[in-house]
Design a binder for these strands. Structure first.
Length: 254
DNA sequence: ATGACTCCCAGTGGGAGA
């Protein structure tokens, strides 16, 4: 069983790459972030023809998330229960007995900005909601673009990034608090190549120089932990022409 | 170096992303 997450940075632009990727990586479920499509423009037919059920939650220009799955997702929830949000950032569903939560965490822009305040409130609400979800769903996967680099080893230049957005102590505390709910960072369950990133800036030849951040994550609940066999970042789509700035992350369970 | 690129909506420029 395989689950994956990918920030596609516009599904309108990346749909052909998504279909190619699914053909090469027939995962059981995939969550997408930054679809940037209103619901009426979602490419349901193309994704259906690829053999996937899909749930989607979009908005104009920004954000937008989707949950693709081989088997239908049930009990679908959009955004964080009880947290009023104008932005389409979360989609959850139960797939094959596993609660799958796909999330596009706020960027936060800068630690002294209003957007950072929003990010902190959002993270707090997410944690309390995931805590509740874990009570009813022992088998749970929380994955997406977290916009948090959990540790210095997740940053290509930790000195330059110290205290910057994605690397602030407050964001990292929130990441640890999610682990504190009984979740495990699947990527760090395994020995990984050093300088493993999931995002590279479009500028500065960052991908060619391998200057990036690991900000896309897959957290699994304790009940699933013994079943996790592998977790990897697939850099291949970042080599495409007109790539997303993010690479997919895949977890394999038995 | 308050940059660089890419996306979007707008509309011949600007915000946002990370």
């Amino acid at each position: 069983m395989k689950f994956a997450t990918w920030n596609v940075n516009s599904l309108a632009v990346r749909l052909p790459q998504l279909l190619d990727w699914l053909a090469a990586n027939p995962v059981d479920a995939l969550v997408l972030q930054e679809t940037k499509l209103t619901d009426d423009k979602f490419p349901t037919l193309e994704i259906g023809a690829a053999g996937y059920q899909v749930q989607w939650f979009g908005q104009k220009t920004y954000n937008g998330v989707a949950l693709l799955s081989r088997k239908p997702a049930t009990d679908v929830v959009k955004n964080i229960l009880g947290f009023a949000d104008e932005q389409a950032r979360v989609i959850a569903g139960t797939v094959d007995g596993v609660r799958v939560i796909g999330a596009y965490f706020p960027n936060g822009q800068a630690p002294d900005s209003e957007k950072f305040v929003y990010k902190m409130g959002w993270l707090e609400a997410l944690r309390e909601w995931v805590r509740a979800e874990l009570k009813t769903h022992e088998r749970l996967v929380l994955m997406g673009d977290f916009n948090i680099a959990p540790e210095d080893r997740d940053v290509y230049d930790p000195v330059a990034w110290a205290g910057q957005i994605h690397c602030t102590p407050q964001e990292r505390e929130h990441f640890q608090a999610l682990l504190g709910l009984g979740l495990v960072d699947a990527f760090r369950m395994f020995e990984q190549p050093p300088k493993s990133w999931s995002w590279w800036d479009y500028r500065n030849l960052a991908f060619r120089k391998n200057q990036g951040l690991r900000i896309d994550h897959i957290l699994v609940s304790e009940a699933l932990r013994p079943r996790v066999k592998a977790c990897e970042i697939d850099k291949q789509p970042r080599r495409n022409e007109r790539p997303s700035d993010h690479a997919p992350v895949i977890v394999t369970l038995d």
